[in-house]
């Protein structure tokens, strides 16, 4: 999942520490989210979207991953 968090942060002149303080998380968390090493939880994604006053889907671009197992590809709901 890609995100534009570094760009949004740079527009406001915030450091990773500033953003971490505003989101009440550690700077390590912001760094991991920005570099794509960690995908944030739904609540953290909502908090980021509210902080930047943008919808979640404009900050995080989700890309469908190919199914890892054969069972997932042919799975039918219900």
């Amino acid at each position: 999942m890609k995100n534009i968090l570094p760009e949004l942060r740079a527009q406001r002149g915030w450091t990773q520490g500033d953003l971490a303080t505003k989101l009440a998380v550690s700077r390590q968390t912001v760094n991991a989210v920005e570099t794509g090493r960690y995908e944030p939880s739904l609540s953290l994604a909502f908090a980021i979207a509210a902080l930047f006053a943008q919808p979640i889907e404009s900050i995080f671009q989700w890309q469908r991953q190919p199914a890892r197992f054969a069972g997932e590809a042919g799975a039918k709901p219900g």
Binding site: A24, S26, Q28, T29, V33, Y38, S41, L44
Partner: peptide, 8 residues
């Protein structure tokens, strides 16, 4: 007391 990434 940790945030979600540190818990992870």
């Amino acid at each position: 007391a940790s945030d979600e990434y540190v818990r992870h």
